[in-house]
């Protein structure tokens, strides 16, 4: 099927880091109220490093591939770097997404931020709300949406 790039299909067929982390340090669940997709991200943090990341996704091929790619891009990275992950970077790493599927990559960015925010809150770590703009927003349509 040529709806998606080969990279998307690879991550869809063989999602990386799929599943749950028992006793995670942070969990983020975000959804697109309109299309109904839901993404859940689990993280394990040691010394400010994301030592483990796992995800579960209820959504289409691009939503699954976006979550998979996002976990791959942040695993083993410092939190600050993970926080800087953008939907644009995820989309580019996937070799592009159809315009009407861009909101799926936004969901991945939001899920990462939501998980880190959860970690900060649980551990009473002070944070700059500006870093979590997207995660704190109502989980509606991301601005990466092509419609």
């Amino acid at each position: 099927m040529s709806l998606y790039s080969e990279k998307v299909m690879d991550h869809f067929r063989n999602p990386r880091n799929v599943g749950v982390i028992e006793n995670p340090d942070g969990v983020g669940e975000v959804g697109n109220a309109k299309c109904g997709d839901i993404m859940k991200m689990y993280i394990k943090v040691e010394n400010g490093i994301l030592v483990d990341v796992k995800f579960e996704t209820f959504g289409c091929g691009s939503a699954i591939a976006s979550s998979s790619m996002a976990t791959e891009m942040i695993k083993g990275k410092p939190l600050s770097e993970a926080l800087a992950l953008t939907n644009k970077a995820v989309t580019e790493a996937l070799g592009g997404l159809p315009a009407y599927k861009l909101h799926c990559s936004v969901l991945a960015e939001q899920a990462v931020q939501a998980a880190i925010l959860d970690y900060y809150k649980k551990n009473n770590i002070p944070y700059d709300p500006a870093d979590f703009k997207n995660a704190l927003e109502e989980h509606g349509h991301g601005d990466g949406d092509g419609e």
């Binding site: 299909m9 091929g61 939503a63």
Partner: peptide, 14 residues
């Protein structure tokens, strides 16, 4: 229930 249709179609296509 608990399933999204497009993912279903793509895996079935495989």
């Amino acid at each position: 229930e608990g399933v999204e249709g497009e993912a279903l179609l793509l895996y079935l296509d495989d």
